[in-house]
Amino acid sequence: MNKPFSDETRHAINGIDGRLYARHVRPDAPHLFSAQKWISEGRRGREARIYGPNARLHAVIRFDDSCKNGHQSFAITAEISGAARRIDDGSIGCHHEAIAETFPELAHLIKWHLCSTDGPMHYISNTIYHAGDRDHNGLRAGERRQIINGRTKQPCWTLEAVNAEGVRISSTPTGDMYRGAETVPLFILEKGFDGQQEDLPPAPVLKWVPLYREGEGKARDLDAARQSAAWPDATDEELSAEPDELKAALEARLPALIEAFRADMSAAGLLWSPLA
């Protein structure tokens, strides 16, 4: 077993008594803590009240690389002790509203949940996605874009029939959808004909056409964007900017954001790195 970086000790964060467990360093990454965990004293909060008179809510803080992803990340969650009945899975977890209500001294730390020493998790991509009105393919509702093959990186094409006079389209709801289109998919063409040879309809003329993806769009979730960016005072206008503009704004504020995060960790008595 690796020797602990520090011993377990009583430790207060913003006046809340608790226990700071022994810190450990990742043996393969000496600049990262594999364990840096603090659990607060128990208080009777709204989440604990339903579990009996002795139930208490505890705030649990971690600032380490316990996930082994190469980043020292911050998390603040809740646990319940002294419950008189079985605690289901839903009673343990983030519960940030309950933490803010029961431990208002820790409320300012909630915005750093899942933030690492290089910034919030998926800082730019998550913020732009939540703030935008484009779907996961980057398209607004009704917007069309030619599909690019992910393996070859080449544009995709499909063979369709020119919808000229006399071309026979199946008499189905799908066929009716394409009846006035310039080209139609081959699968809705009539494949059979009953009649004399001289009465055969004209053979369809085939044409390569771009294979498109049509966007579904999505509603903007600006509250989720603020949370992803750790930017609670961002205006709707700032978050609704075009992706490139929003990305530039996020990149510009990141150094100051990390410094503010570091200051809050220091004030809480949590170490930024074993080497710091």
Rank of each mutant, 00 (worst) to 15 (best):
V205Y: 07
G42Y: 08
I148C: 02
I16Y: 04
D135L: 03
V205T: 15
R86F: 15
P155D: 05
P27C: 04
W231V: 00
L254H: 05
Q196R: 12
G138R: 02
G215Y: 01
G138V: 02
T172I: 09
R19G: 02
V25E: 04
L222R: 05
H58A: 09
W157C: 01
S6E: 12
R49P: 00
A164L: 12
G142Y: 00
G180Y: 09
R145H: 04
A161K: 13
S171Y: 09
G132W: 06
D264M: 02
Y178G: 01
R46E: 15
P185G: 01
D223S: 14
G215W: 01
W157P: 00
T235A: 05
S6R: 11
I16S: 04
S81G: 13
E182H: 11
I16G: 04
F33I: 01
R43W: 05
T152F: 05
R213F: 00
L246A: 07
C115P: 04
P155C: 02
D118A: 06
P255S: 02
K68P: 03
A241K: 13
C115R: 00
D233M: 07
F74W: 04
G42N: 05
A276L: 04
G93V: 14
A75C: 09
A107G: 06
A55R: 08
T9S: 11
I39M: 10
D89C: 06
H58E: 10
E105D: 09
A78C: 10
R140K: 14
I76H: 10
N54Q: 03
T172P: 01
E237P: 04
T9E: 08
H136K: 15
Y212G: 00
M121I: 01
G195R: 13
D221W: 02
A78F: 00
K207V: 04
L257Q: 06
A98C: 12
E251W: 13
G45F: 00
T117E: 10
H108F: 09
S125A: 14
L114C: 12
R213E: 08
D194P: 00
A276H: 08
F103K: 08
S6V: 11
G15P: 09
E79F: 08
R56I: 06
A181K: 14
C156W: 03
P173L: 03
L257F: 07
G18R: 08
P243K: 04
C94R: 14
K68D: 15
G70Y: 15
R19D: 05
A229W: 01
R220P: 03
L246F: 13
R19E: 06
T174N: 07
I110S: 08
H130F: 15
P104N: 10
I169M: 08
I87A: 15
K37M: 11
H122P: 00
E198A: 14
